Structure formats: structure tokens, C-alpha cells
Simulated assay, not measured.
Amino acid sequence: MKLTIYYDGQFYVGIVETVDGNTLRAYRNIFGPEPNDQDVLEFIYSDLLSLIERNKQKGLIADQDIQKKINPKRLQRIVSKEIKQAGVSTKAQEAIKEQYDLRKKEKVMKNKQLRDKQKQDKREKKILKAKNKHRGK
């Protein structure tokens, strides 16, 4: 499990990455304007497990890299490149995006069903009203 905290321009955001076997799952938490150490520790001790349990999601397949001896100069280049990076892995961003798209599709389907039901109810009321008019009531 890995927690990465970064500043997105407005708020500090924490990305939690978990790897189970070969499945990568990522979760996002917004800390606010400027969290202190106490806020982060409170999140880790109390809110982290509930966040993971609440957001059961399908993960991405993580690549298992085979570690072999790396040239020290190459290692130094890799480390400096990672330090310059924004901090969130692309796989984590991909997992969050997939979860967001899934929730969006569910919401669109739910809203469509609600609209169809409202149209059907309105049509039934209109038909009933027309029948009552013809009966002379």
C-alpha cells in the first residue's frame, strides 16, 4: 500500500495505491487547503480502511517487473526523473478514471430510467383524464 500526497492547484489530494496479487487499485482522498501531520495520521488510522471498503472496484492488472542489476548512472537518471514527476503514477490515474467513468455510466442509466418512468406516469394520467372526460364526469 502506498500513499502519495500532492497539491493539485487548489487542494492537497492523497492517492492510495494497493496491489493485491497482480491487481492494482487506486483510491483518492481530498485533504483540503493545507493538511498537517495530524490530519494525515487521522486519515491513515481511521478513514483509510473505510475508504477502501466503501469503494470496492475492479482493479487494473499490474505489471510485474523483473529486477535486475542496474547501472548506477542509469539508476541516478531514473531517480532524478521520478523526483521531477508530479507524483501520481499513470496506472493510479487510470484506475481512478475508470472508476469515475463507471459511476458516470451508472448515473446516466439511472437518470434515463427515471425520466422514462416520469414520462410513462404523465402519459397514464393524461389517458385517465381523457377517459374521465368522455364518461361525462
Score class of each variant (00 low, 15 high):
Val79Arg: 04
Ile66Tyr: 03
Phe11Asn: 14
Asp101Gly: 03
Leu102Phe: 15
Asp8Gly: 12
Gly59Cys: 12
Lys117Ile: 03
Gln85Lys: 08
Lys126His: 13
Asp121Ile: 01
Ile70Lys: 08
Ser89Gln: 01
Gln120Cys: 05
Thr23Gly: 06
Lys112His: 09
Val88His: 00
Asp37Gly: 15
Lys107Leu: 15
Ile78Cys: 00
Ile5Val: 13
Thr18Ile: 02
Tyr7Ile: 00
Lys73Ile: 13
Ile96Phe: 05
Arg115Ala: 11
Glu82Thr: 02
Glu124Arg: 14
Leu102Val: 13
Ala130Ile: 03
Arg54Glu: 12
Gln38Cys: 09
Glu106Ala: 12
Gly14Thr: 03
Gln38Thr: 15
Thr18Glu: 00
Gln93Phe: 02
Lys56Asp: 12
Ala130Gly: 03
Met1Glu: 08
Lys133Arg: 10
Lys119Glu: 10
Lys126Leu: 05
Gln67Tyr: 11
Gln57Ser: 10
Gln85Gly: 06
Gln10Leu: 09
Val13Lys: 07
Phe31Glu: 10
Gln113Thr: 10
Leu48Tyr: 08
Val79Met: 02
Gln64Val: 15
Ile70Gln: 12
Lys129Ile: 04
Arg77Ala: 05
Asn111Val: 05
Gly32Asp: 10
Leu60Thr: 04
Asn36Asp: 14
Ile5Asp: 04
Gly9Phe: 08
Lys81Ile: 02
Lys91Asn: 03
Gln99His: 12
Asn71Arg: 08
Lys131Tyr: 09
Ile83Leu: 01
Asp8Leu: 11
Tyr6His: 11
Ile83Tyr: 07
Val108Glu: 15
Lys122Pro: 02
Ala95Cys: 14
Ile44Phe: 04
Leu48Trp: 04
Asp116Glu: 13
Glu94Lys: 08
